[in-house]
Amino acid sequence: MAQDIRTEALDASPRLFENDLLDKLSRVHHLTPVIVYTPIILGLVFYSLSSMGIGLLLLGLVIGYVAWTLTEYFGHRYLFHTVFPLPFGLGPRFQFLIHGVHHIYPNDPLRLVMPPLLSGPIMLIALAITRLLFGATFAWPVLAGFMAGYVAYDCVHYWTHHSQPTSDFGKLVKRLHMLHHFRDAEKGFGVHAIWWDYVFGTAYKKDDTPGAKAV
């Protein structure tokens, strides 16, 4: 009975906004990023092929993907897990809305991927930066790689909470994310890009297990 109550609590989908529209927009189906961004990614790839060779296209995709994995790691580490000193004491509320709620209700199936209202501005910022760094032409494949990395991140994030992996690597990825939720939230910031935790010293030990430390 106690286990059933805990499972229900972890799966709950609490109301976040008094406004009905805002609250509805905060909940999205887990396939939303795939549906929204896959056509854009493909469009950027085909458009890029009209102005560059396959080698340059692939290079852009790799650069964009690596840029996303770093965004994933540092965004999760510093943006999602930092309470900013915002005016009127809004810092804790802001942190709760963008990530804190996920740690309280980690299995909420409608809040495991970013809503377009959040991911859209990230992509616009990425576009501005890539155009500034790489110019108008090469920015497009870089942006496509960045978006592809984001879609992979959201898909893997949902999968870690609602799937049972069968491969050794899949089990490792899920275990590391469960450690982040149920052992130590100050480690394991790479969701699908798990290698950055080893690079930046925030990886778990091999014998760490979920539940050994309260979060």
Score class of each variant (00 low, 15 high):
125 I>T: 13
100 G>F: 04
181 H>S: 08
137 T>S: 08
116 P>G: 00
186 E>M: 12
195 W>N: 02
98 I>A: 01
100 G>M: 10
88 F>E: 10
177 H>A: 09
160 T>K: 00
147 M>C: 01
93 R>Q: 07
136 A>N: 15
149 G>Q: 11
117 L>E: 13
132 L>N: 10
129 I>C: 06
125 I>S: 03
134 F>L: 15
166 T>N: 12
100 G>E: 01
167 S>E: 06
114 M>F: 15
96 F>M: 14
145 G>C: 00
146 F>Y: 10
186 E>Y: 15
112 L>W: 12
175 R>W: 13
144 A>C: 00
130 T>Y: 03
95 Q>E: 06
195 W>E: 02
194 I>M: 06
114 M>W: 13
133 L>I: 01
92 P>C: 05
117 L>R: 06
111 R>H: 08
151 V>R: 07
193 A>N: 02
110 L>M: 14
176 L>W: 04
185 A>N: 14
159 W>R: 09
88 F>W: 05
191 V>W: 00
116 P>K: 12
178 M>S: 07
126 A>V: 07
123 M>R: 03
94 F>Q: 04
177 H>W: 12
181 H>C: 06
188 G>W: 06
165 P>H: 05
105 Y>C: 12
131 R>L: 08
168 D>S: 15
95 Q>H: 12
168 D>P: 05
170 G>S: 01
175 R>V: 08
98 I>L: 05
164 Q>F: 11
97 L>V: 13
176 L>M: 09
144 A>H: 03
105 Y>S: 07
137 T>M: 09
97 L>Q: 08
192 H>Y: 15
175 R>Q: 10
190 G>W: 03
150 Y>K: 02
179 L>W: 11
133 L>F: 13
